[in-house]
Simulated scan of single mutants.
Amino acid sequence: MRGVLGGLALIWGIWSGLAGAQQHPARMVGKWCESDNGGQSCSGYTSYFPDGSAYAYTTSVEGNRLEIVGMWGHIGRYSCFTHIAFEEYDENTNLLVNWGSRRDFCNKIIGLGLSEFVYEDYEGERHSIYRLSDTPDRSVWPPVSGE
Rank of each mutant, 00 (worst) to 15 (best):
Met1Val: 05
Arg2Val: 09
Leu5Met: 11
Gly7Val: 00
Gly7Leu: 01
Ala9Glu: 13
Trp15Gln: 10
Ser16Thr: 09
Gly17Val: 03
Gly17Cys: 04
Gln22Leu: 10
Gln22Ile: 08
Gln22Phe: 05
Gln23Thr: 15
Pro25Cys: 12
Pro25Leu: 11
Ala26Ile: 07
Arg27Phe: 10
Met28Cys: 07
Gly30Pro: 00
Gly30Ser: 03
Cys33Thr: 01
Asp36Trp: 03
Asp36Leu: 05
Asp36His: 01
Gly38Pro: 00
Gln40Arg: 06
Ser41Ile: 02
Cys42Gln: 00
Ser43Thr: 02
Gly44Leu: 03
Tyr45Gly: 02
Thr46Ala: 12
Tyr48Thr: 02
Phe49Gln: 07
Pro50Lys: 08
Thr59Gln: 05
Thr59Ser: 07
Thr59Met: 05
Ser60Ile: 02
Glu62Ile: 01
Gly63Pro: 00
Asn64Thr: 06
Arg65Leu: 15
Leu66Phe: 13
Gly70Asn: 03
Gly70Arg: 01
His74Met: 15
Ile75Phe: 08
Ile75His: 03
Gly76Tyr: 09
Tyr78Ala: 09
Ser79Ala: 11
Phe81Asp: 13
Thr82Lys: 04
His83Gln: 15
His83Asn: 15
Ile84Arg: 04
Ala85Cys: 09
Ala85Asn: 14
Tyr89Cys: 08
Asp90Gln: 03
Glu91Ser: 14
Asn92Asp: 13
Thr93Phe: 12
Leu95Glu: 15
Val97Ala: 05
Asn98Tyr: 01
Asn98Ala: 08
Ser101Ala: 11
Arg103Val: 06
Phe105Cys: 08
Cys106Ser: 05
Cys106Tyr: 08
Ile109Asp: 15
Ile109His: 04
Ile109Cys: 06
Gly111Tyr: 15
Leu112Cys: 07
Gly113Asp: 03
Gly113Arg: 03
Ser115Thr: 01
Phe117Arg: 01
Phe117Pro: 02
Phe117Asn: 09
Tyr119Glu: 12
Tyr122Ala: 13
Tyr122Thr: 07
Gly124Leu: 04
Arg126Ser: 11
His127Phe: 15
Ser128Phe: 10
Ile129Phe: 06
Leu132Asn: 01
Leu132Met: 07
Asp134Ile: 02
Thr135Lys: 15
Pro136Tyr: 04
Pro136Ala: 09
Asp137His: 13
Arg138Glu: 07
Ser139Pro: 00
Trp141Glu: 08
Pro142Asn: 04
Pro143Arg: 08
Val144Trp: 05
Glu147Phe: 11
Glu147Ile: 03
Glu147Trp: 09
